[in-house]
Each structure stands twice: as C-alpha cells, then as structure tokens.
Write a protein that binds this DNA or RNA. Structure first.
Lengths: 133, 133
DNA sequence: TTCACTGCAAATGATTTGCAAAGCA
DNA sequence: TGCTTTGCAAATCATTTGCAGTGAA
C-alpha cells in the first residue's frame, strides 16, 4: 500500500519521492532476490517505469544505508540483497553470481578483536562455489 | 635466488619469463601485504623495472591459479594477498582496504551443503570494519 | 621454427559526476 | 520559496582485449 511504503522510507530517513517509492515497490513485489543496479533498472523498464540508471544507483545506496536492502561487496559488481535479515552468501566464482545460503546459517566463532580505533561493523561469510566434478 | 624462483614457477606450471620472475621477486621481497595490480605496477616502476600494466594483471591472475598469491574478491577492486596460508580478512568499508586478520583465525561451523552440482571451493570470512565512536 | 608472452593503445563495463530542469516540504 | 532529487550525457576507473612484435624451448 502506498502510505505504508511512504512510512517505510520516512522511518529510514529517506524522503519519499516518486522514484524511490517506485523502486521500493519493485523491490518488495519481486520477493527475495539479489539485484544489481542494472538488473533493477531492467526490471523497471520492463514494468514500464521510466527511471534513469543513475537514480537506481543512488537509490540502492540510499536504501542500503537505511537497511532496506543489504549491500554485498563481493566479486566485481555491486550486489544488493532484498533479504535484510542476518544471513550469508554463496558466491559462484565462474559467473560472479551471489545468492543466499538458505536455512540455518553458518556460525563464526573465535572472532578477532578489531584493530585499535576500529569497530566491527559486521561479519560476512562467503562460501565460494565451483562446478562439482 | 634466481634458480629457486624459476623452480617455484615451474612447480606452478608457469613458464618462467623475465617479467614473471621479476614480479615474483617483487612480491617475495616486499614481505606479506595486499596488492592491487596497480600498486604492484607502481612498485615495479619505482624499483626501475619496466613492465606493462596488462602484464601485471595477467601475471597476478596466473599466480593466483598457481597458488603463489591469493585473490580476494572483496570491495570494488581486485586484491591479491601474498600470504597463501589459510586466513581471513578485515575489510575497511570506508577506504576499501583489505588486510589480514592476524593470529588465530576465526572459525566457521554449521556450514551449509553446496547446491546440487556444485562444490565448495573455499570459505572467506570478511570482518567489516568502521571507525569506532 | 613455433607457439607462448608482452606491450601498447584502444575497447569495455561498471559506476560516478556535473549541471540544468523538476519536485517535495 | 529553497533545498533536494532527477535525468542525461560525459567523465572516470578498473580491467580486458586485439594485434603486431619479442622471447623461450
């Protein structure tokens, strides 16, 4: 619903503009998946929405700071994950593709202390995959 | 020593050319660190060696397949780690810089099974860091 | 000799930026 | 109205590629 999306953006301190509401809707309507700025731009074109690619880039980064999507900095492009719960990723080296590890998540212990003046912002576990055989 | 470097390359099935021997020496003489192709290229220029940037790219990838360096695909550039032992990384989000987690390494359990047709090529733990405060 | 490797410069692909026009508060 | 956002095209940055010349076996 429209008003709800507006509230979501406001809660994230993001001013609700037409473009941002559109993008939020596209993201939520498509279910959990991994987006690149370009793939989302294509989705927008396909569904008849006119947006500039630069706006998609900007908006995804804004959404990432507002925890509406999760930025995964793996491989040679920017992936944005619509699943904002705590989870980790498979990474297909051959294709550069990223997807969620389903079900129970891997667990990390024996974590190091961060260097002086730094703090831990998060932990990512990347399980690299290749074709079996 | 020259002959030893040659043997190292041969063992990795990499034909020892002048450029590759030079790069291997640069990598080993500098101690453990994290390189980008460009940073290594600069090191080469500084030490008076003439190499093309494209060759540095090629060579680092060849060395990565031969396990002479480790390719770390985090952030928006290619990092190559001269530490080939099993270890994980800190990632400074603000600067895009990568460095080794020193000492005892984090440990991952509860690993997921790979999807059908795939096998696990490796696990990377990325500890994201930000300025404390 | 033969095939792999290198250098160079141009091509590519992802992402960012500058700036004028349009939109939200 | 005043500050933010958008769109567009150009700029940037990292990386790859095509190809002619060079080198290793």
């Amino acid at each position: 619903m429209h008003c709800n999306d507006e509230a979501v953006l406001r809660a994230a301190q993001i001013r609700p503009t037409r473009q941002r509401l559109t993008i939020l809707r596209l993201i939520r309507d498509g279910g959990h998946r991994h987006l690149t700025p370009d793939s989302l731009y294509q989705e927008a074109l396909t569904s008849g929405v006119r947006l500039s690619l630069a706006t998609v880039y900007n908006t995804l980064h804004e959404f990432a700071s507002g925890n509406l999507v999760k930025h995964v900095a793996v491989g040679d492009r920017s992936w944005f994950c619509t699943n904002t719960t705590d989870h980790h990723h498979f990474y297909e080296v051959a294709t550069g593709r990223v997807h969620d590890i389903p079900g129970p998540q891997p667990h990390v212990d024996n974590l190091p202390a961060p260097p002086p003046g730094m703090e831990v912002a998060g932990i990512d576990v990347i399980v690299r995959l290749r074709k079996a055989g």
